[in-house]
Nucleic acid binder design. Structure first.
Lengths: 301, 301
DNA sequence: CCACGGTGATAACCGATGGTTATGACGATC
DNA sequence: GATCGTCATAACCATCGGTTATCACCGTGG
């Protein structure tokens, strides 16, 4: 029979393991130092293992502590995801729709337009936007953290989701100003193929491949200069010369701040930005309604 | 600020969600029904969401409950792994070595030979064998559930592990008795390539590809007839005609029980069965000692 | 050499939690 | 309409998780 823990105890352990200092960890956790001490002791007693080596001049992890650390992180991450999903469920119960987005949709008032159209049909509904990291290509749909989301195709587990296209845009290449190819008005993808690329995290699955333009490389693997998980990182990586990357035409303004330019690329297909939802949620009025509003705005544009 | 749960509460919730019946779930959990009722209520109150629809004729999950379910499983699985790792750490502290294996090594007294050699060098050490499922190609090394393990190459994250080869054996094909190719004494892999194959779970990574002989297919993808995660399943799937599969020569006796035959295959490389360990554990005397014993036995054979 | 900061551990205390048994409310069944 | 089986509630009690106050220990510095 496996023993249970309180997730809090793992949080406590993680804090001490990171600070390597009880008093500081206790402050960070907003509990008193004795409480923390006692809980960690209780955790050790429960597991039957010493996790920490206490010393007035500092705390060290034992072998067992090192072994527990990654698992503790794992449990906490899993619970954090559960917590997000519950926050969404709570919101849904109160007539709120949680909308995820990987990057800000931007694109000239798209979001306000959808919102006003949506609010016209559902006056009492509340829309809550939630910015999601690039680790999750579904922007929270996969783990229930959001109900609808603005994402790029292709999605992993395509058959789980429905979508409606928001924008189909050519993919440009983003280059640092000084790059030789920046002199041209337009470039062939063949000229880019051997450059180091900035890549999405591996967890983004097929989407990573898409932005590396894997299909257009004919089997030759890309060089990955760095991994990026946010807009600012991407900008910094470009300026630092770590690599180049493809961007959707509609996202170009977010990147071309200074020192970075974008150029059209011949020989690669366009990108499709969509509003997506879980198929199992197709019955929900708010989900339906938002998709409807989205379709209407996209048609009007 | 994220709210903590007791892992026990998730276990309770999962039991009710699976049984859809409080009283039965309470029995399964060895607690009284009111205790379970109260805890679930407390969980709901804590999360601010109704998880279950109670009805005298049965219990149903709400939307929120459905949303929580996979996360609860995830958290519990992560904690179970942590618990295994702690059991191993506990054992290690008491001079016990935890040895993992995906299938029984068998192979004519290999294990007893290693054990006696090992015990000669470390008389007070205790060896604990732990059979691991086929989902994990490292047989517990990856998540700390074991300290050394008998596994097949290739491993994922190869650079994390050290190993010593126990047996290099040709790969045979296992076929149901009635299969047309069973009539031949030996077959060409080319004749097998288009057959449906039994495959390891996707989580086994490169090992799955190896037993599908991906390298020998020249880019043509295999047909997967079924997934297998244990010896008995494999036998059943073979007899049922769901597909054929490759097996190491040393494992053939486990499979050829009746209705299944094995044949040599031309045109594919051999398999390597190894004892592996985490590189970070190379300093541990028991790990070193077991590897040493293993090397000695392998050399003698 | 001895007082002093700073560490984590311990003690005494108290409300909340998580369990028990006994009992209640309610709908389905016969 | 009595009865059965469901889950909920009540009363009770030990343990848990937190508090404040204090201790034991160790390196440092007059």
């Amino acid at each position: 029979m496996t023993i249970d823990v309180h997730v809090r105890d793992l949080r406590y352990f993680l804090a001490v393991a990171e600070e390597l200092h009880f008093t500081r960890a206790a402050e960070r956790l907003y509990v008193s130092q004795p409480a923390l001490s006692k809980q960690i002791r209780a955790l050790e007693r429960q597991l039957g293992v010493e996790l920490l080596l206490r010393d007035p001049r500092g705390v060290l992890l034992t072998e067992a502590g090192e072994a527990l650390l990654p698992h503790a992180r794992q449990v906490l991450a899993a619970w954090a995801a559960a917590d997000r999903a519950m926050a969404t469920a709570r919101a849904a119960g109160r007539g709120t729709l949680v909308v995820g987005m990987s990057t800000s949709p931007g694109r000239g008032g798209l979001l306000p337009a959808i919102r006003s159209r949506f609010t016209a049909a559902h006056p009492e509904a509340v829309v809550r936007l939630r910015q999601m990291g690039w680790q999750d290509p579904t922007a929270g749909l996969a783990d229930g953290g959001t109900e609808v989301a603005f994402v790029w195709l292709p999605l992993p587990d395509e058959e789980r989701y429905g979508w409606t296209v928001v924008a189909e845009e050519p993919r440009l290449v983003a280059l640092p100003e000084g790059h030789p190819l920046a002199a041209r008005a337009e470039v062939d993808f063949a000229d880019l193929a051997d450059e180091p690329f900035l890549a999405l995290p591996p967890s983004s699955g097929p989407l990573r491949d898409f932005w590396l333009a894997l299909d257009e490389r004919g089997g030759r693997p890309p060089r990955v200069g760095a991994e990026i998980a946010g807009t600012e990182e991407t900008y910094e990586a470009l300026v630092a010369g770590l690599g180049i990357c493809l961007v959707a035409a509609g996202n170009a303004p977010l990147i071309t701040l200074g020192g970075v330019v974008t150029r059209p690329v011949r020989g690669i297909g366009p990108s499709r930005y969509v509003l997506a939802w879980r198929k199992e949620d197709e019955g929900r009025p708010l989900v339906r309604g938002y998709a409807e509003a989205c379709r209407w705005v996209a048609r009007a544009a």
